[in-house]
Simulated assay, not measured.
Amino acid sequence: MKHRQLLAIAIASVCASAAHAQSTVQLSGTTDVYVGSMRMAGDAGRRTVVNSGGMTTSWFGFTGSEDLGGGLKAGFALTSFIQVDDGTQGRFPGDTFFSRDANVSLSGSFGTLRLGRWMAPNFLPSVLANPMGDSFTFAPLIVHMNVPLFNGSGWQATTPSDTGWSNQIAYSTPDINGFKANLQYQFGEQPGDNGKKNVGANFFYFGGPLLLTGYYERDQISNPGQGAYFGTTKKDWMLGAAYDFQVAKPYLTYGQTKADNAPGRAKTLQIGVSAPLGAGKVLASWAKTDLSASDINRKTLTVGYDYNLSKRTDVYAMLMNDKITHQSSGSSFGVGIRHRF
């Protein structure tokens, strides 16, 4: 009898371990803080700061998956932005708590179907196709696309509707010989919205040292949260490429943005390069945005060095120059540390 009890306990233990192995939950994130002297084009003066998110917007959160059998997996992501310099939640006042990710997914050989808040089509192509990644502080392409200037220049971000979309259905294809794509649809969810929505798609091709990417969006509602109708339709697209020659990796992007209720387009060209040096990389990127309905353009150049202390921790130094037609020019410098967990 005792042997049978021991056998039953052993079998129960093995089953419990197997069930546990089929389901995982992970806490992860990135903390990034820099010290800088900042002046953007059009600023009245210089600011000395200790700020969050020099090279990556700081965030933390939970992701998980469960093996459902038969090649199916369920997953979830709940991740939140945070300003590490003062502990404030979100990227800006009024940002939703889980504005980075709040979704559930089902994946298999068919690809992945995801419901909830997730990246907008514009985000990942712009991050992969410039040498400074998702730096909303120092990457010229990202600054032009996503960061308005609250000064005399009146500069507006060229990306119509945030880098993340709420209330969306997204389908991601499986990897097909290095090619992947996402198809995305965001519901307006407003009473009497008459079908107002955001739709978009992006693609990625990874062929050895070659990267090709691009996106298209047709936007009618704002983000984050339950967005409001713009009162117009805004369209934007971008194509990008990079090639790793080992000694250097050049980057190139070109894109346009157009609103139905405004004349002209915003046309943005970005050229960049990264080159290994010691335990880090030298980074350089230049972006120019022309507003075709006027004589106004913006030119931003950033050069810097990113040094790896370990696989998860790096330190960086960046120097940026920013110019807008008819505005005072600005220059900024920052040194920071980034840790991934």
Results as ranks from 00 to 15, higher is better:
P131V: 01
L301G: 03
Y243H: 11
P191Q: 12
N308Y: 12
P125G: 00
N261P: 03
L124S: 07
A21N: 07
Q190L: 13
A18M: 11
N194C: 03
G240Y: 04
T300R: 08
A102D: 08
M320F: 08
N51F: 10
Q190Y: 04
M320Q: 15
S105N: 11
G111D: 04
A170K: 12
T232F: 07
A18L: 11
G36L: 01
R265Q: 11
Q226R: 14
Q89V: 09
D322K: 03
S222Y: 09
F204V: 04
K234W: 09
Q184L: 13
G178S: 11
M320N: 14
Q89K: 10
L269K: 01
L124V: 09
S105M: 08
D322L: 01
F62E: 04
P131Q: 03
I296L: 13
G152Y: 00
R312L: 13
M132K: 07
V315M: 05
A228E: 12
L291H: 08
G334C: 04
S329Q: 14
M55F: 05
R100P: 00
Q186T: 15
K267N: 06
T302C: 07
K73V: 06
G53Y: 11
V199L: 13
Q168P: 09
G330E: 05
G90E: 06
K180F: 02
N223A: 11
D101I: 01
S294W: 02
M145L: 15
N182Q: 11
V282F: 15
G116E: 06
D306L: 11
L7E: 15
K235Y: 02
A284V: 10
F92V: 00
G71M: 08
L78F: 15
P174V: 07
T137F: 05
L319H: 14
L319S: 12
N198C: 11
M40A: 15
A8G: 02
D244R: 09
D32P: 01
A293R: 05
D134R: 04
L141M: 11
L309C: 04
T30R: 10
G71D: 06
W59L: 07
L27G: 08
G75K: 06
N194M: 10
H3N: 13
K288A: 08
A262C: 02
N182R: 10
Q190G: 10
A241H: 04
L115H: 02
S107Y: 05
T257S: 15
S105I: 06
M145P: 01
R338H: 06
